[in-house]
């Protein structure tokens, strides 16, 4: 293993890691918003809203994220959407993970015992009140862990934007593999950074999960 090379190039990797982190944070925030909207739509009493939610989930989960990204970034200008690569990356990845988060959130809400809603309703609460005061607080606890899985997948998923030339970690590794012909060193370097980001996030999520469970 060529450690001199690693020492020489690692600052570029750290810079790229910062881009990966930004991509992750923004796209996960967007994903959570899409997920909340999607779950609300899928559990709505309005039939069109339910249908729209179902189509969103089915189409996004039924096609590759890479293709979605390409449609947005390369195809967007044809329908009047001009985005730079980073913006396209955030929006494409966010909308993509949002479909998975929709199902996570919906699953957690459904998993709260039906008796809970019934008990709230017999006390005279409205459907919305029962949802807000009784169901959601319990569902929130249940969704931390599965949302953590989504988030973990998304951090790795940000590598896709290398294909639209966003200079993040995987793109940087690829470029240096091409110029140095040292694939193992470059993989090692990028891999260590990904592992740190991902396992640190995992620790944070376990902490949240434990804290939520204590109540």
């Amino acid at each position: 293993m060529d450690f001199d090379l690693i020492l020489r190039v690692y600052p570029f990797f750290l810079e790229a890691a910062w881009v990966t982190i930004q991509l992750s944070v923004y796209s996960i925030a967007l994903g959570l918003a899409c997920g909340a909207l999607g779950a609300a739509a899928r559990l709505s009493r309005s039939k069109p809203a339910r249908a729209a939610g179902a189509v969103y989930v089915s189409v996004i989960r039924g096609t590759p994220a890479l293709i979605q990204l390409f449609i947005l970034y390369f195809g967007g200008p044809q329908i009047g959407i001009q985005l730079d690569a980073f913006e396209a990356g955030v929006i494409g990845l966010g909308v993509n993970i949002g479909a998975y988060m929709t199902e996570t959130m919906r699953g957690a809400i459904i998993a709260v015992d039906k008796g809970q809603g019934e008990a709230a309703r017999t006390l005279g609460m409205s459907r919305a009140q029962a949802m807000r005061k009784v169901i959601l607080p319990q569902a929130a606890r249940l969704m931390i862990r599965p949302l953590g899985v989504n988030i973990n997948a998304q951090i790795k998923g940000t590598a896709l934007v290398a294909a639209i030339s966003v200079v993040e970690l995987t793109y940087t590794a690829q470029r240096y593999i091409g110029s140095t012909y040292k694939p193992f060193e470059m993989f090692f370097l990028a891999g260590v950074i990904y592992l740190v980001i991902i396992y640190a996030t995992g620790l944070g999520i376990s902490y949240l999960d434990r804290k939520a469970a204590l109540r």
């Binding site: 790795k156 998923g157 940000t158 590598a159 896709l160 290398a162 294909a163 970690l169 995987t170 590794a173 690829q174 593999i177 012909y181 694939p183 193992f184 993989f187 990028a190 891999g191 990904y194 592992l195 991902i198 396992y199």
Partner: peptide
């Protein structure tokens, strides 16, 4: 803990 795309690069270029 690492992205599939990165693994693909490793395997493709690493094998070469």
């Amino acid at each position: 803990g690492t992205p599939l795309l990165l693994q693909l690069f490793l395997i493709y270029f690493g094998l070469i």
